[in-house]
Computed example of a mutant assay.
Amino acid sequence: MITLREGSTRVVAGDAQEMGGMIDRALLQQMRLATSFIEASQESKLAMPMTQPALQALAEGLNCLVEGRAKVSHSVREMTRILKHSNLREVGFGCPGGLWTASANEPEALAC
C-alpha cells in the first residue's frame, strides 16, 4: 500500500483544481481573441489572404491548449489511480469534479 500524507495530498488536489480552471479560462480567452480578431477583420474589410496567417496561428494555439487540457486531465486521472491504492483512498479531497471526474480504471486516449 502506498503511504501518502494527507496535507500534501490536499495541496496536490487543490493545485489540480486550480490548473483545470486556468486551462479553461485560457481556452475561453483564446476563443474570445479569435472572435474579436475576426470581427475586427470583417469590420475593416480586410482580405482573407491578409488575415489567414493570424487566424491560423490563433487556431493552432487553441489546438495546443485543448491538447494540454487532455494531458492535464490524464495526469489527474493517474494521480487518482495512485490515491486509490493508498492509505487515503477513502478521504475526499474535493478533487476536480464535473468534466474532470473520470474512472481511474479507464485510461484516457491521447492523440498527441
Rank of each mutant, 00 (worst) to 15 (best):
L55W: 02
M22W: 11
V66Q: 13
P96I: 03
K45D: 07
T9W: 06
R69P: 07
G92H: 13
A57T: 11
A109D: 14
C64N: 13
A54H: 01
A16S: 04
L33F: 09
G7S: 00
V66A: 12
G94N: 07
V76T: 02
E39S: 14
G92T: 09
R89Y: 09
G21L: 12
G7I: 00
E78V: 10
I23Y: 04
A13V: 03
A109N: 08
G68N: 13
Q42D: 10
I2M: 02
K45S: 08
V72P: 02
S44G: 07
N87W: 03
M48I: 05
T51E: 05
T51A: 07
R69S: 08
H74C: 08
E18D: 15
R25M: 14
S41E: 04
I38E: 14
S41P: 03
T51K: 02
Q17C: 14
A40M: 10
Q56N: 09
T35M: 15
M19P: 06
G7H: 00
F93Y: 03
L33N: 10
C64K: 15
L110R: 14
Q42T: 07
D24E: 12
E6N: 02
M19C: 15
C112S: 10
R10C: 00
A40F: 04
L65P: 11
K45V: 03
L4W: 01
L65V: 10
A59Y: 09
S8A: 01
A102Q: 08
M19G: 13
V91S: 04
A54E: 01
L27Y: 08
I2H: 03
A40G: 08
A57F: 06
G7D: 01
N105Q: 12
L58N: 13
E108M: 12
E43Y: 06
L62K: 04
M50C: 00
Q17K: 13
A111L: 09
G98Y: 06
I38F: 12
E67L: 14
C112L: 03
N105E: 14
V91D: 05
G61Y: 10
G7W: 00
M79S: 05
A54C: 00
E106L: 13
D24Y: 05
A26E: 12
R81I: 03
S86V: 07
S86Y: 09
I82A: 04
T35W: 15
L99S: 10
Q52M: 01
G94Q: 04
C95R: 07
V72N: 06
I82V: 14
